[in-house]
Design a protein around this nucleic acid. Structure first.
Lengths: 207, 207
DNA sequence: AATTTTCTTGACCGAATGGTCAGGTTGTGG
DNA sequence: CCACAACCTGACCATTCGGTCAAGAAAATT
């Protein structure tokens, strides 16, 4: 155990509970106000802990943000990873859309956290995007291209296909305020959205 | 002219020039950092004016932001307004998509300014959305519905159609950083995007 | 129970922020 | 060229921000 950078002591129950509280509060605050718009005092209030206590658990504001982004990336890429090369092409893509839509519904704060970060040039996330995301993106666009070459999907640019899927699904989380206003606060616009997107991408991709 | 709220004196040349400088600088700063992340000092630097001088032309940080948002709304709604009830339905919608895509290419900062605002709950823009945008939205979705009822377009929910158009076109401005990384800094991904979107929405809407 | 470790906080700090103001400079109409 | 208005700025201010610290309270360990 000569790794001086990782003081790996098993975290106590209090550690676990409070770190979770802080991260949950920070997610709420960061996703609504962006990194620079968020303050430690807001996070302290939302978490029910004092500001110095928050700095006892995290090295600073940026450390909290980075921790959130790291945790986010895994969950974010997961639905795309699940796209199975051996499954039915059309159903795999429609399934992916469904999963993304579920994430917009269940984790809108995470979606907005990500959107805020990328909108502002991804200053704290570029490395993640250039490695993890880029690799997965290349892999999956290649897979989709193969499916198209085999005539199992109507041909189109797989990269823009993925962009469109991301854009349309995340839109309902990121622009929730606008959507709510325009649909007169309909109980759940996401239901109608899912049906619409299924139809649209089915028509696009059916050979 | 008994309107005490508007000191309507014709603005001098210097007024005009400096207000423009300030708004241009503010657009750059606000669109990158969001409202709370932007500082008057940054705007001062970017505009080449001193901070007190900026406050000579505008009542404060918020006034600058509001001015930008007001100016934005007009340009933002314009492409949709241009959708002609008497034109060919499919071509009208594809033309609208084309115009929106042009705006993403030419005015990415405006797109990001808008995205930042809505992402954070549209605190300074809700009234605008509820009046101007909502009215136009209802009008145009009704028009598209009529077209569908007449069998001139394949049926789908016109509201989600517009959401999808907004999401996909603005994505290339708002998530420019991500798109650039994933396309290896391709000269202009928007070209390919336009072709892709034309194809997708054509397939969706062709009866 | 004693002691060591972990946890928590009130008080405080330097830097940054939005904004003010008195007074100077520049432009402009007569 | 004079006088008045418009324009501009250095110095300053109150508040908020991220962050520190010494010392007390609570757990855990012995």
């Amino acid at each position: 155990m000569n790794d001086a950078t990782k003081p790996v002591k098993k975290p106590s129950r209090i550690q676990l509970r409070n770190r979770k509280r802080i991260l949950d509060a920070a997610l709420a605050v960061f996703s609504q106000h962006g990194y620079r718009g968020a303050t430690l005092d807001q996070i302290a209030d939302a978490s029910g802990l004092s500001k110095p206590n928050i700095l006892y658990y995290f090295d600073g504001k940026e450390a909290i943000h980075v921790t959130l982004l790291n945790a986010l990336m895994d969950n974010w890429l997961d639905p795309l990873k699940k796209m199975d090369p051996d499954g039915d092409p059309l159903e795999e893509i429609l399934g992916y859309i469904h999963r993304k839509m579920q994430m917009s519904r269940e984790f809108p704060r995470e979606s907005r956290l990500f959107a805020n970060e990328v909108l502002q040039g991804a200053p704290r996330m570029k490395p993640h995007l250039e490695t993890g995301l880029k690799t997965l993106f290349d892999e999956k666009t290649a897979l989709i291209q193969r499916w198209m070459d085999q005539g199992k999907l109507a041909p189109c640019d797989p990269r823009h296909l993925l962009f469109s899927i991301w854009a349309t699904t995340q839109h309902y989380a990121d622009f929730e305020e606008q959507v709510a206003i325009l649909t007169d606060g309909e109980t759940d616009p996401v239901d109608g959205a899912e049906q619409f997107l299924d139809n649209m991408f089915r028509k696009l991709l059916t050979p």
